[in-house]
Amino acid sequence: MKDMQPHTPAHAPDGPLLRVEGLSKHYGARIGCADVSFDLWPGEVLGIVGESGSGKSTLLSCLAGHLTPDAGQVIFETRGGPRDTVQMAEPERRLLGRTDWAFVHQNPRDGLRMGVSAGGNVGERLMAVGARNYGAIRETATDWLGRVEIDAARIDDRPRQFSGGMQQRLQIARNLVTGPRLVFMDEPTGGLDVSVQARLLDLLRGLVRDMGLAVIIVTHDLAVARLLAHRLMVMKDGRVIEHGLTDQVLDDPQAAYTQLLVSSVLQV
């Protein structure tokens, strides 16, 4: 993270950025997620772990407004004060998704425009929030490609000419260029080589620290959770069964399921 500009320190928040209360989503009679509540402060990374089908992706989708929950509140501290984003009108929530919020998909293809150049992918999000000066947009895009360690010479290449790891870094640049305050991530290192994973983890940690980002990251990889998340929520059958400091949950798990989860991993 040598190129990072100094930002305001990540540790001077005066209140939670996000307050989630009683969030539930059912698929017919089946529970997607049930009665989830938590606070998230600026500069905090919350990991959501659990096996496939535990409800973690449903929860993330409800939080990010991609799914409408049946009950509960997702109160975000907007620049104009706290707002329940569940009750927001769709255009307003979309605006939030382009400005203060960002969503990094597991598959870069879901978060990138594959037919648009790398620079265009980053610049597009800037234009969506009103940037019009071509030179300034290109300059900012180049700066961000540098931050995610993509060679400036590749700015006019299309993402499909990139490796999986580069595509993921491009997706992160596209998401972070507008300076969001809250980032949702769904298995951002899934499907990447371990060496690429490490580089991405380092990048994310630096961004969290230097930009004071709040992050909610869904992962089934406990090693990734340990290195990235400050706190963990463990989900099973749609419910949060354990919640605490990451290393405490992993080293002294209290719930039977968490003990099973942790002891099933070769080494975390």
Partner: peptide
């Protein structure tokens, strides 16, 4: 957890026997 994270940041240090870091840093 927030209070413990803050405690570890400025008031309580820990030198464990093992180094645990993000690879490649």
């Amino acid at each position: 957890p927030r209070e413990i994270i803050a405690l570890r940041r400025d008031r309580l240090g820990y030198v464990s026997q093992f180094l645990r870091v993000v690879p490649r840093v």
